[in-house]
Every structure is written in C-alpha cells, then in structure tokens.
Design a protein around this nucleic acid. Structure first.
Length: 664
DNA sequence: CCGCGGAGTGTTTTT
DNA sequence: CACTCCGCGG
C-alpha cells in the first residue's frame, strides 16, 4: 500500500499522508490532490494498525465524505468502517446519545429551514409583533437574523447593524422572538440546524463525555475547513483537545459559505490553537492546464486572501486559453452551449465530462429547456431540492406525526390540507392534541371533531389513515404508501401539474424502502439526504448525464470542459451582494475562483446582456473578468461587440438594453 | 374563520 | 415571474 502511494504522491502530499500523530493543517489549492491526500492518509493510518472505526472524518457537505471513503475502500475495504459524515449528522448522533446531558428530550425532531421559519412566524404573531408594525421582519428574515447571530456568534444588534440596518429598531423584539423560539423548541423536542451544532458543542464541553469521545475517536480529520463556522471550529477543537491528533484540510481562497457564518478565522488561526502544528501546502495542480491556471492565478491575485499561493500545473501541455463569449440573450447562449456540447461529444468528450455552472439556479432555466429539447440528458445540482417542495413536505408531515404525535407543526400542516380547515382551526385541534399522552389518544382527539363540523368527514378519514398506518406492523415503505394513497386527492386538487409531483413522491418511496425505522428516515431526510439514484444501476442503465450545477454544489468536482454562465455584474457577483460590504463581494470573487478552477482542459466564460429576471436587470461583464491582468489570460473573440468603452454607458438609466429582455 | 383573488414584493448559495 | 401577503366576501 505505502509503496504504491509513494509513486502516486508528490512530496508535500506524502508529508501530509504520513503525518500520523499531532495536529496538521493542510492548505490545499484547487486540484492539488486534496481528496487523494485524505484518502491515502486514511489508508496509511489503517496500515499503521489504527482501527478504522477510531478515525472520524468530518466534512461540511454530505457528498464529500462518502466519496472519499468510497475511494479509500476500493483500496482497502476496512476504510468503510471509518466514521464520518457532515458536522450536522455527527451532531445528531451525538445528541441522540448524550442529549439528556443538556436537557434535551429523547425524541428529537429536526426542523428544516421551512419549519424553523414557520415556527418563528407563529411566535412573532403570537407575541403580537406582526400586527404592531407592518415593517416588522417577516418570518424568513427573522430566521436569517437569528441564525446569523448564532452561527457567527454575534449579538443580534451587531447582525442588524451590519446587515439589516433598517431593522435596528426591532432588535429587542427580535431578541424576544428568539428567546421564545428557543423555549418553544426545547419544549417540543425540536432542533433546527443551528441547534444541532450548538447543543453538540454543549455536550462536548462536558469533560466526561469528551473523554469518552476522545478515546473513541483517536484521529479526527476535517475537510473543507475553510467553510466551517465558529461552532464547527469549536466542535473540532473540543474533539481534538485531548489527543491533539487532528488534521484539517482546506483552502482559504475557496471559502464560499460566509453567508452561513463560515468563519475564516478557523483556518487562519488553527496554527495558534494547536501550537506545534505541522503546516503543509499543496500547490501543484494536477487538474487544469497552465492556460486555465494562468487565469486562476490572475483572479487569485486580485483577491485579498491571506495564505498566498500560486498554482502551478503539473500537466505538460499549456492548453487553450479560456474563452469569453458574449450573447444577445439567454436563448442564444443556450443554443450555442448546446451545439458546443454536441460538437465536443463528436470529438470524443463524453457529456459526463462536461458541465455547465452558474451562480444561481434560475440562470439555468433556459438552458435546461434547450437541453431537454435537444435530448441531451442532464442532472441539475443545487437549487430547490425535491424534498423541500410543498407536496413532499405535506406527505412527510403525516409521517412525522406518526413518529412523534407531539409534533404540532406537522399536525398543523396536516390539518390545513383539509378543506374547510385554516390556520385557526388547525391550531385549535393541534393544541388539544398537545395534551394527549400518546398517539392513540391524539387520534381520539380527532374523533372529537369527527361530527358536526364542515371538515368532520375529512378528519375522520385522516384519523383512519393514521390509525391504519400506525397500528399495522408494516414497513416504513408501506406506511409511506398508505399516506400517499390518502394524500392523492389532495395532491390533485392542490396542484395543476400533479403528475410531476407524483414522480417526486415515487422517488421518495424508493428511499423509504431502505428504512426499517421511521425516525431514522425522517432524520436522514433532514440532515443527510440519501442518494436518490443508485450509482451502480445508473451506470449500466444509460449514459451518464451532463452536469448542470450551482457553483456551490460543484465544489471539489472537476470536468474536462466547463461552461460558466452569467459572468456578468448582477449575476456573478450576484446583485444581492452589490452594495453590501466588501466581504460579500470577496466571497463572490472566491466563488468565481472556485468555478473556473473546476475545468481541466477548456473553460468558457459566458454572458449576455438581456436581463434574466424581468426588465430591471442590466448586465455588463463581471468585474472579476474586466480587469487588465485577467483579460490577458482569456481569449475574447466576441467582446468587440461590447467593447470596454460602451460598457460604461450602460450604467446610465435611459439605455436601450433593458427592453431587449426575452419572453417565453 | 376560510379561501379566493388581487396587489405587492424581492429574487443566492446549504445543513 | 413566482411566491407571499393582505383584505374582503361568503
């Protein structure tokens, strides 16, 4: 094994792989073989007689951990026993075991983003803030503010001051809502995503538990460390404080989760937290051609990141310069991409090795249409997930009340689906149920409303369905089926395009078959979504599809050819970041960097001037490209059409471009 | 109190 | 443009 890795690793990689004891910080530029380092270090630890189950591999997103362990397991099946996952899933496991220590009930229900907002909205209404002043923040804003405060470890005032200045007058009230929300969650056994982390940290502060975990996990590894927030940094620190066997891997230039509280300092200050830590820098890039790296380095050079580095290509031929393309509108652009992709296929580049990336999902709508028309198979990553859609949440709410009859948010959702039941009635019934002692008596409560109300008939039907699903000794999959049968008429009534939505439910049904326990299913759906497509089957079934992905979801991945859409002001950087603090623009800048460093052989930067979202958008070439040193690294064939001089005039109000937006 | 329809609003990225 | 919110009629 080790002899094999000798050949496959360069000297810095080997240094990281062979570091066993003590703290290690690996600064890994894009394409520098970071995944390989983690993979081989796991193998190396195992080779040295360390039990795989005493290695803990934490990652920020769920995709990453599985991939690394799969790859390692191909060399040594023992690697499968390595414990790993996202911080959130790890926290959940921890809390299931030790939650009582911090006063949590046994039955934990995870609130997804939607639920959390819903709960906050109700609390704000209950406290009377919503009526008092129309300008009081809406539920999604409430959630953002409170979540930012927790993730960034800053007071609500300070969050408001920096990011929501217009709401500063409400600081006190928002704080009250937050307090109320915290109590409400504790009473109901609800945990939102932030709670998972903050309670996990609480648990780890207990010395006894920490010691147990230190003994269990003798080696801690964290990937994408630049994207961890303060809480995650603290968790890492606590986990490693006993034995100090901790390796964190990251790249400060690829930190793109600042909006979620990712805390730059974690990676910057790691050497201070762990004094004698070894620092390894990986700067050889095995992915891209020098031409692409020249652009990447020029972009990097314009950023204010702190760990200076220069990527050098390990590959030999210099490759083609990245190309900027300019189009009149999105359809023209989509058409060109389609043709180029087909041309590439003819030239022997499979579609699976090509990808179209974009800052925000909506940018890809026209392209998706074009691909569908052309019969090019594609898979979209990022954006709204199917398990976040209304119909899936509707069905899941039924399963949630079966798993936990005290889940009043889910009860409300279930009731509100019935004709004749609105928020008020739902609340009345739900609060009555809250006093019940078990699901049986909860269902009896439904019986009490089973006569004399306009919705009684529906309620009885609901009761029967739930009783059947609860009483029957059937699998999770069958329970799911019963609920879907019951839900069918509601689905048809609620949505015009219900057949599409039924497909989602079918996809979900397949997932449910893998579970024997309802709670596990629900927890996984909230924090660690099971792969909906079985990779093995897919491979044999049909050709692997083209990837369309948000930049966020593309991190860590690579393709031969990458098309980056919307390289324009207002799109990348996103207009949401314009006019905000410099740090937000910097994050957009890093996002751009992440995007271009995904490409192996050829990179296209595309943009068009017609607005994407209504007539108000005006676009011009992104500032990240419109820079002398950057422009030197790209080929700009069609740029003459909108030469640098004209661009500035587009800023004036009375320009003609706005009218050019396309309708469909 | 429900639900419809019109008006208004803001629009990212993920666990 | 899509979704949410609000006000009004039933």
């Amino acid at each position: 094994m080790v002899s094999m890795s000798d050949k496959l690793l360069n000297s810095s990689q080997r240094e990281a792989v062979e570091a066993i004891k003590g703290p290690v910080l690996v600064i890994a530029g894009p394409g520098s073989g970071k995944t390989r380092v983690i993979e081989y270090r796991v193998l190396n630890l195992i080779e040295h007689g360390i039990k795989p189950e005493s290695i803990l591999l934490l990652t920020f997103t769920r995709r990453a951990a599985a991939e690394m362990l799969n790859r390692a397991a191909e060399h040594d099946p023992r690697a499968r026993k390595v414990d790993g996952g996202t911080f959130h899933s790890f926290a959940y496991k921890l809390l299931k075991q030790y939650g009582a220590q911090v006063g949590l009930p046994k039955n934990l229900m995870i609130l997804d983003e939607d639920d959390a907002q819903e709960a906050l909205g109700r609390i704000a209404t209950k406290l009377g803030f919503a009526e008092g002043d129309k300008r009081f923040p809406k539920k999604n804003t409430l959630r953002s503010v409170l979540s930012a405060s927790i993730n960034k470890n800053r007071s609500i005032e300070s969050i408001l001051e920096k990011e929501y200045e217009h709401l500063s007058q409400f600081a006190g009230d928002i704080e009250k809502v937050g307090k109320n929300y915290a109590e409400y969650k504790k009473e109901n056994g609800y945990l939102d995503y932030d709670d998972l982390l903050s309670y996990a940290r609480e648990v780890l502060k207990n010395e006894q538990i920490r010691n147990i975990l230190s003994r269990k996990y003798e080696f801690v590894m964290v990937d994408e460390y630049q994207d961890t927030n303060k809480l995650q940094g603290d968790i890492t620190y606590l986990l490693a404080s006993g034995h100090r066997n901790v390796m964190v891997v990251g790249d400060d230039a690829q930190s793109i989760y600042g909006f979620r509280g990712a805390y730059h300092e974690n990676i910057m200050s790691f050497p201070e937290q762990f004094k004698d830590c070894k620092v390894v820098k990986l700067e050889s890039n095995y992915r891209s051609t020098q031409a692409i790296l020249d652009l990447s380095n020029a972009v990097l050079d314009n950023m204010e990141n702190k760990f200076k580095k220069v990527l050098t290509a390990a590959r030999e031929n210099a490759g083609e310069k990245p190309t900027i393309m300019y189009f009149g509108d999105a359809e023209e652009e989509a058409g060109w991409v389609k043709e180029k992709i087909q041309e590439n296929i003819l030239n022997g580049i499979p579609i699976a090795h090509q990808a179209v990336l974009f800052r925000s999902s909506y940018i890809s709508i026209q392209l998706q249409a074009e691909m569908a028309r052309a019969g090019i198979p594609f898979k979209v990553f990022g954006g709204l997930k199917f398990y976040e859609t209304a119909h899936v949440k509707d069905v899941l709410a039924h399963l949630k009340v079966l798993a936990n009859f005290k889940d009043e948010l889910s009860w409300s959702r279930v009731f509100t689906l019935l004709p004749g039941v609105g928020a008020k009635t739902a609340e009345t019934i739900a609060s009555r149920i809250h006093r019940a002692g078990d699901l049986k008596s909860a269902l009896d409560v439904l019986g009490e409303f089973g006569e004399g109300y306009k919705y009684s008939e529906h309620l009885v039907e609901l009761k029967e369905t739930l009783m059947k699903a609860f009483g029957a000794k059937v699998s999770v999959g069958e329970k799911f089926g019963m609920v879907v049968d019951y839900y069918m008429p509601i689905l048809k009534d609620k949505f015009d395009e219900w057949p599409n939505r039924l497909n989602d439910l079918e996809a979900l049904r397949k997932i449910t078959y893998n579970y024997t326990n309802l709670e596990d299913l629900l927890a996984d759906l909230a924090i660690e979504i099971p792969d909906d497509e079985q990779k093995g089957k897919d491979a044999e079934k049909e050709e692997k599809p083209l990837t369309l992905s948000t930049i966020h979801s593309a991190k860590g991945l690579e393709w031969d050819v990458v098309f980056l859409l919307g390289v324009a002001e207002g799109t990348l950087p996103s207009k949401m970041a314009l006019g905000k603090s410099g740090e937000e623009i910097e994050e957009e800048h890093r996002l751009f960097y992440v995007a271009i460093t995904r490409a192996r052989n050829k990179l296209y930067l595309l943009f068009h001037l017609a607005g994407d979202m209504g007539p108000m958008t005006f676009n011009r070439l992104s500032r990240f490209v419109d820079d002398p040193s950057v422009l030197l690294s790209v080929e700009h064939k069609d740029l003459s059409m909108m030469g640098a001089k004209d661009k500035t005039t587009y800023d004036d109000e009375n320009d003609g471009i706005e009218e050019e937006s396309v309708d469909y």
